[in-house]
């Protein structure tokens, strides 16, 4: 992407952050995939006995993993998986479509891993699922199909295999 495009993007990111009404207006003009019906799965047992997983679309990944593709204007439908026990200092964020300066200082702003660990220690939840999953939440065009037919179902399958009994999702 050219420098002018990058500059335009940087300005938009700050405008959307500080002027929520502008973001809402943008969203009204943007075409989102409208849900048909609402899927539903009840929680099978109390939270204090349940295995909780987290999925974020904030572009988090291990520093050792390849970053999300920032060059494609339609985004990147791939995901990154990393251990829930990962050291926070090994995590980073690749995402230029939101201001992640706060999350860079404290990852809990977008992925509350410390808070979830505390709730596990207190017995509020049963346990934490072994793997965290992360997408980059700026997916459009042909990548939407990849997300819906390939990568999101793969993450769902992995979560099921790993014993996740409920999932909290966090955006950017």
């Amino acid at each position: 992407m050219g420098k002018i495009q990058d500059l335009k993007n940087t300005i938009l990111v700050q405008l959307f952050k500080h002027l929520p009404w502008l973001a809402e207006r943008w969203a009204r003009g943007h075409r989102f995939v409208e849900g048909q019906g609402i899927p539903w799965a009840p929680l099978g047992k109390p939270l204090r006995e349940s295995c909780i997983a987290m999925v974020t679309t904030a572009g988090v990944h291990l520093t050792s993993q390849p970053p999300f593709d920032m060059e494609d204007p339609d985004g990147d439908a791939t995901f990154r998986a990393f251990p829930a026990a990962a050291d926070k200092s090994d995590l980073t964020i690749t995402h230029k479509y939101y201001d992640h300066s706060a999350a860079d200082r404290d990852i809990n702003v977008v992925l509350p891993i410390d808070r979830l660990r505390e709730l596990q220690e207190e017995g509020f939840i049963g346990r934490i699922a072994p793997t965290l999953y992360s997408f980059m939440g700026h997916i459009d065009g042909p990548h939407l199909q990849t997300l819906m037919e390939e990568t999101a179902p793969e993450v769902a399958e992995r979560l099921l295999r790993e014993g996740a009994e409920a999932v909290v999702l966090t955006p950017a």
């Binding site: 969203a27 899927p39 409920a166 909290v168 955006p171």
Partner: peptide, 23 residues
């Protein structure tokens, strides 16, 4: 994010998503 959430719920895992965009 809601799309991913729907796909996970379809696999019978209950989900909740935090959202900053109600519409």
């Amino acid at each position: 994010m809601g799309l991913i959430q729907r796909i996970i719920e379809q696999r019978k895992i209950p989900t909740i998503g935090i959202t900053l965009q109600k519409e």
